[in-house]
Simulated scan of single mutants.
Amino acid sequence: GRRYRDWKRSGHGWVDLTHAMAQSCDVYFYEAAVEMGVDTMHSYLSRFGFGEDATLDVSGALSGLLPSRDWKRAVRNEPWYPGDSVNLGIGQGFMLATPLQLATATSLIANRGEWVEPRLLKGIQGDRLPDAFLPSETHEPLALKDPDDWEYIIDAMAEVMHGSRGTARRSGRGASYRMAGKTGTAQVFSLAEDEEYDAEEVKERLRDHAMFVGFAPVDNPQIAVAVIVENGGGGSSTAAPVARAMFDAWLLEFSGTGDGSLISKADSKSEVH
C-alpha cells in the first residue's frame, strides 16, 4: 500500500536495465528485488565480497553486513518481509558496505570476474618478497553462465558516464577514454512515509552522503575507485567529479603520456584504490 520513492518525481517512463542504471531508477530495482527475493540477492552479493573481510593485510577492516533471512530471524526474531527486499534492492535497509568492499566489487566487474584482493603492502626492505608475509588468496574467479553478461553490465555502467541521460554524463564529458561508473546516495536518516527530503531544511550532518563507484578505461581497466563524500548530497554532482579527477590523474599523468594514450602494462587487471 505504499508508493515507491524515486529521486525523479515525474518518473522515468518505461526503462530496461541499461536505462535504469544510467538514470538511477530506483523503482526498477525495487521491482527486481521483490521478484528475486532475499535468498537470490544474498547468494549473488556474497560472491562479490559483501558481508566478509576480503582484505589480505589490513588489520581492523570491517566486514559490513549482508543481511539474510536467517540473520534477521536470529538477530531480530522477525521474519524477512518483502519490504526488506525492496530496501536491499538499492543497498539500503539492514545492509552495510565499506568503501573498500565497494571498490573491490567494482574491480571484479571491471576484470570480468577475476578477483584482485586488496593489499596494502607493496614492498619490503631486503631480498624477501611481500608474498611471504601475506595470506594466500581465497577467492576463485567468478564465472557466469553467459560471459557476455559482464559486457552488458559494463556497457550499462558506461552509459552512466557517456549516455545522453546518464546521471554522471557531466563528469564523463570530454574524456579521451571511456569510463564506467554508478552514482548513488546513502541516506543518513529515514523519512516518514509522506515526508519529503529537503537538503536546505536538514542539518548538514544529516544530509545524504554522495557515492560513486567506477573504473577506467572500459576496455583495458587500470583503476577502480569508490568515492564517498560525507553529507555531500548527490553522487552525480559531488562524488563523480572526484572520481573523474582520479581517473585523469592515474591514466593521463601517472601512467600515460599526457595526450590521452596509455602506456601498456604487463598486468592489465584493474587496481583497487
Rank of each mutant, 00 (worst) to 15 (best):
R2M: 11
R5F: 00
W7K: 09
K8I: 05
S10L: 15
S10A: 14
M21W: 00
M21K: 00
F29H: 03
L45N: 05
F48Q: 00
G49T: 13
F50S: 07
L65H: 11
L66Y: 01
R69Q: 13
P82L: 11
S85K: 02
L88N: 04
G91H: 05
F94D: 08
L96H: 04
T106M: 07
S107L: 04
L108S: 05
I109A: 01
N111D: 05
N111T: 13
R112L: 03
G113T: 08
E114T: 13
P118T: 07
R119I: 13
D127Q: 10
D131S: 08
L134M: 06
P135S: 08
P147T: 14
I154W: 00
H162S: 04
G166A: 05
T167R: 01
R169Q: 07
G172S: 02
A180K: 01
A180T: 01
K182I: 10
A186F: 07
A186W: 05
E200G: 09
F215M: 01
D219N: 15
G232I: 10
G235W: 00
S236R: 02
S236T: 06
S237F: 02
P241M: 11
V242T: 14
A249T: 11
W250G: 06
S255D: 04
S255H: 09
G258A: 10
S261V: 09
S261L: 09
L262T: 06
S270A: 15
